[in-house]
Design a protein around this nucleic acid. Structure first.
Lengths: 194, 194, 194, 194
DNA sequence: GACTAAGCGAGACGGTACGTCAAGTCTTGTC
DNA sequence: GACAAGACTTGACGTACCGTCTCGCTTAGTC
């Protein structure tokens, strides 16, 4: 009845507690049971929240996962690559922290689930590679390697990052036993001085 | 009265027509709608078949996809790698036929769906990389390249195959526009004479 | 600082505009869609009013309907029974105006909805029979008929009113085609000189 | 795959156990909680049955109630009217058995709920008046009364039945205290020798 | 040639989850 | 403090599939 002339609407504001509970529940269930088996109803129950509150703010399961990623609730945010001067050592350090994900209890399943989510939802793929720092940190470190003369000048730095991440994914999808060893060998070859 | 020791039971055997109808329907629906949205009921209806007939012979959706793969109903079987003497040219030819999948109408979605299926079902991953000839044909061609002196002796041939396939997957999952160009650049770098 | 002992509270009082908008919306929606399908949210939206404003003043859907009835927003208020000296003619005139409700576009549904509301909420039933004037006007006219010697002395005037209204209801609930004709026949029999 | 030439379809047949459990649960819950508060989910849970099994065979809550009525699960089926020669006594006996419904623990609510259901679903109204024997048994008994000279020749027998039932309904909806007494008075008046 | 036993199309069944709607309560900011 | 707006939890809606289980055939051996 009363007309408001104000520019922004009145009324209650998004509940930070609900948002946090939902994302926490999503992360917990995702890590425990994988992407299939992850249901909106399950999340709502786990979070003690109404389903509608989820549907109000997220359009899909994928969007939830994507936001969990950007919040660092599934894997650490923004894997860094150090700069010690030794390119191979630096890349291997980054690789080690990425591969550490696979060492955690359900790490392999977690990664496969992230791949499944990324296959279904574009956002997830972007946030995943962003989290791992493939495009930013790793590519930049490789570029620095070129400047330092430790990598061929024509090395496609961004693609090499995708190649490393992709290899991890392929090995995970085909359930290879020693992903870590294989990846270390690959990186050693790719980054070898020429 | 007395139990027969006969090795083979009485009654009709597995219907080849049903098997074919089921796999054909699976392939059709998978290509049209993707892995999520692919349902057993949908396949049964499309194939004009009872659900039980599917459950009798395949334990899961993934198994159906895996068998479609080995039957070459989703992507061509057994991508070959020619041997012309020129390693780069041969690998690029193989790469071209793999990338051709992405050019088909729903090719990108098909690949993402295969990845989703592989993430859920181990079998699919194996059959996928087998179909593409990554481990056998490509790795062997690379090994021959080493013998021919066109590739570094310490090149991890199998891992390089995974790296190429993995890069395709990563780029597909992040919806990159020019996967083909990028892959050609990567291969050129990996296979470059040292 | 110091609390005033003033008898009337601070702040605005009940908004007459809101009350009217709510009742008008209720009547509109009730007539258009029936009692089931009538929702508080729908009324609030239709009235341009917050839900809380409805809940603040009415305890239930039924109370809204009851108030619409006493306001004459659903059916005319207080059907009168004339006194011409001819009992049958007077009762038939009352009957005609009651049956006129059924002739309106969604009249039959309106009546059924009122019955549904009355079945759920006691208030509605009272207000309904009050609106129709069954207990007051009709019963009194019948009593006058007894005094005039046009109706048997032992006629249970109030019950006869319920019988007439009840017959309308039963015929409406069973979707009889010619309720009006039937009711005229019934009234003629009930009020017949003995 | 195999084409059947048979006229009626193969496959499993409707489960009598499920049908019975569903109707029993419906009747139980309807009597306990009334028509509003009666939910399909509640019935399914109470019956130990999937929701779909209900939706497969009944289009609406009303249809369930209607079938409960024809099965005699809510009120006795087919109230009879005796023929003793004394019209008033016979009608009062029928009336007594109808009013007995109101004496049961939640009898008044049961009747109101039936009215609510009838207001929403046409079928229920028909089955309700059929169950009570208003149109068949009572109307026929009244017709016999006319033949016996105990009722005026022009008495609209069917309408009188509706009037009696309608009066019960109106009195129930307005929560009158002594419905039984009132009805007995009404019937005595209606059936009085002229 | 009759008898069996399995395969088959169909689809009913008890479930789980979907995404939507509305209930009634609570919160925010405006008047 | 009433109000419009609308977020919140709860719970039911009606639908889609799951995987299992009859049905009433058809058919391929075995006796």
């Amino acid at each position: 009845m009363n007309e408001q002339a104000s520019g922004h609407r009145a009324g209650p504001v998004r509940s930070a507690a609900a948002r946090d509970a939902i994302l926490a529940a999503t992360a917990r269930l995702f890590q425990g049971q994988g992407y299939d088996h992850l249901t909106i109803e399950g999340i709502a129950k786990e979070a003690g929240v109404g389903k509608q509150t989820i549907y109000r703010w997220w359009p899909s399961r994928g969007a939830l996962i994507a936001e969990c990623l950007t919040d660092g609730r599934l894997i650490p945010i923004d894997f860094d690559v150090p700069y010690s001067g030794d390119l191979l050592r630096d890349v291997e350090e980054w690789l080690g922290s990425v591969l550490a994900i696979l060492e955690t209890p359900h790490g392999a399943m977690l990664l496969r689930s992230l791949v499944a989510a990324a296959a279904e939802d574009a956002e997830v793929g972007d946030h995943l590679s962003a989290s791992l720092g493939v495009d930013r940190h790793l590519a930049e470190r490789l570029a620095a390697g070129i400047r330092d003369g430790q990598l061929a000048a024509d090395a496609p730095v961004e693609l090499l990052g995708h190649a490393v991440l992709g290899t991890i994914i392929v090995q995970s999808l085909t359930r290879r036993p020693d992903v870590a060893g294989a990846l270390r060998e690959l990186v050693r070859y790719l980054v070898a001085a020429r």
